[in-house]
């Protein structure tokens, strides 16, 4: 590993068979994926899927049962605490010291990190429109979340681990938050972004990992995932058309018509469907972005979710 650890071509976060058991109860099992420098990586799954368990192992709050998590070349199980100078972490259930003001809290964290970071704190707070003079227990959930965002970014870390970061943020602040992510990415930070809603990571992340019930379902490019996913397509024609020919096109399921509009759900390439629609003189085509639920459904259709492993997905 080179001096600053952000070597090109080397993952910033590397999970290899990461497993957590609580006694006999499974937390997560066999998680394996990498996050590269300069990559925003989405970590998706329904609530209770194990995202937070995995993240808490990466940041050292939970001890690893089996497998390993490596951050910037260092195994987190044995790395010195100084590694965390280069990690920014926003917990999923953020709890701050309510008796302090936002400014006091951030100055406390900065001192614990061995610096003042005054300018960076002020700059970030201004951008997020955060009032640092108010006591934390008087702040709304959204304003507390802003403090959480500031403390994760204030030391300009090389690795950002953000667990459901946009919870409670209003849309304007969310846009500023996304700008912060972009900047960090441009500076080469690796960013792991967890969410239970696809739309939150959709336009930020390149690749995503999806987990469910403690198991990894897939690690894939978001675009190709969407192509494979079950999605809904509306087709408008000049006049009503027969639905039966649609139903036999490869990938198409569940065809319905209302007046001159045909709505169908499909997975895979849309070529066959579009060719047939063009032959019928289609006026417009609307594809509804698949929801995370629909992606789950396409990943697990026809079987028990737990039976699915990444290896199966490659051939899916």
């Amino acid at each position: 590993m080179d001096a600053d650890g952000v070597a090109a071509g080397r993952p910033s976060i590397c999970l290899a068979g990461l497993t957590k058991y609580y006694g006999h109860n499974l937390g997560v099992e066999d998680l394996t994926f990498d996050v590269m420098p300069g990559e925003v990586f989405g970590f998706l799954g329904p609530n209770g899927a194990g995202k937070t368990t995995a993240i808490r192992m990466i940041v050292g709050l939970l001890r690893i049962t089996r497998g390993s998590a490596t951050v910037l070349g260092a195994d987190v199980a044995s790395a010195p605490a100084s590694l965390r100078h280069r990690i920014g972490y926003l917990p999923g259930a953020l709890v701050l010291y309510g008796n302090l003001t936002g400014g006091e809290y951030l100055r406390f964290l900065a001192r614990m990190r061995g610096g003042a970071m005054t300018r960076r704190i002020n700059d970030l707070s201004e951008r997020l429109n955060l009032d640092l003079t108010r006591h934390i227990h008087d702040l709304s959930k959204g304003n507390q979340q802003k403090i959480g965002v500031v403390q994760a970014f204030m030391h300009s870390p090389d690795v950002l681990i953000l667990d459901e970061p946009t919870a409670g943020l209003d849309p304007i602040v969310q846009r500023e938050f996304e700008a912060l992510i972009d900047e960090a990415q441009q500076q080469g930070a690796a960013i792991l972004l967890s969410s239970h809603v696809l739309s939150e990571v959709d336009h930020l992340a390149g690749r995503v990992a999806i987990i469910d019930e403690g198991h990894l379902l897939v690690v894939e490019d978001i675009a190709s995932l969407k192509r494979r996913a079950l999605r809904t397509i509306d087709l408008d024609f000049p006049q009503p058309v027969a639905t039966a020919p649609f139903a036999v096109i490869e990938g198409v399921t569940d065809v319905r018509s209302r007046g001159s509009q045909v709505t169908c759900t499909m997975t895979g390439e849309e070529t066959g469907l579009l060719r047939h629609a063009v032959d019928l003189g289609v006026l417009s085509v609307r594809t509804h972005e698949p929801s995370l639920d629909q992606i789950f459904f396409s990943l697990v259709q026809g079987g028990d979710r737990r039976a699915h492993r990444p290896a199966d997905e490659v051939v899916a």
Binding site: V59, G60, L61, P80, A81, S82, L83, R84, H85, I87, Y89, P91, A93, L94, V95, L96, Y97, L109, M112, R113, G114, Q151
Partner: peptide, 17 residues
């Protein structure tokens, strides 16, 4: 118990310290 440990213990300071 309150949850403030999540940030305190992920600072670059060991649990022992």
């Amino acid at each position: 118990h309150r949850g403030t440990a999540d940030i305190l213990l992920t600072l670059p300071v060991s649990r022992v310290r």
